[in-house]
């Protein structure tokens, strides 16, 4: 673009300074031009505006789970039974590849909200339907490479490195949450 021409024969210091300033100015211009192109690839304003979803918890009975789409990905909302909560609390941290207490993963004990995306390579784990396999720990089982998640959505066995991600959510009433 604006190659301001380094002097051929070694010019006077004044000429080199002028060349330097001009080239620097031009370089700033080129950098400034590049930014809008990169920024245009970031999520646009209408995509950002659709960043949250509301879920009605009323119809979900105890022991049941629903899957909702949020930002293009599945979110598992499970209404946990007392037994499931107790099982999650009773696990010693040494048995967890990614240690995290159950209390830190839920806002209200009986409602578990996790991103339904296996932290290994991104498949959707099974366990939402009553007929699904739930793995050895009563939570979810990922059929792609055999990761097992427990009733708190934590990884227990298999290649996945991290627990199922907890998305940002808030209770806007006793029976409604807003995710994102």
């Amino acid at each position: 673009m604006a190659d301001s021409g380094e002097a051929t024969a070694g010019g006077t210091p004044r000429r080199d300074f002028l060349n330097l300033v001009t080239t620097a100015f031009a370089a700033v211009g080129v950098g400034a031009v590049a930014w809008p192109f990169i920024a245009s690839m970031q999520p646009s304003r209408d995509v950002l505006a659709l960043a949250s979803t509301e879920v009605d918890l009323g119809p979900i009975a105890e022991g049941q789970a629903v899957t909702v789409m949020w930002r293009g990905k599945p979110v598992f909302v499970r209404h946990r039974t007392a037994a499931e909560i107790a099982a999650a609390r009773a696990v010693p941290p040494s048995q967890l590849p990614d240690p995290q207490p159950d209390q830190a993963r839920v806002q209200r004990d009986q409602w578990l909200v996790v991103l339904g995306v296996c932290t290994h390579l991104g498949c959707v784990p099974l366990g939402q339907k009553p007929t699904d396999a739930r793995g050895d720990y009563g939570g979810w089982f990922c059929p792609c490479h055999g990761s097992h998640y427990d009733t708190s959505g934590r990884i227990r066995k298999g290649p996945a490195p991290r627990n199922l991600v907890i998305p940002q959510y808030a209770f806007i009433s006793d029976t409604k949450i807003r995710i994102g």
Binding site: S4, G5, A7, G11, L18, V21, T22, F25, G29, A32
Partner: peptide, 17 residues
């Protein structure tokens, strides 16, 4: 504004060259 300043600089470089 930026381009005007750059034009001045570029013209000075051109005259020098």
């Amino acid at each position: 504004l930026f381009l005007t300043i750059l034009a001045g600089l570029a013209y000075a470089v051109k005259r020098k060259v």
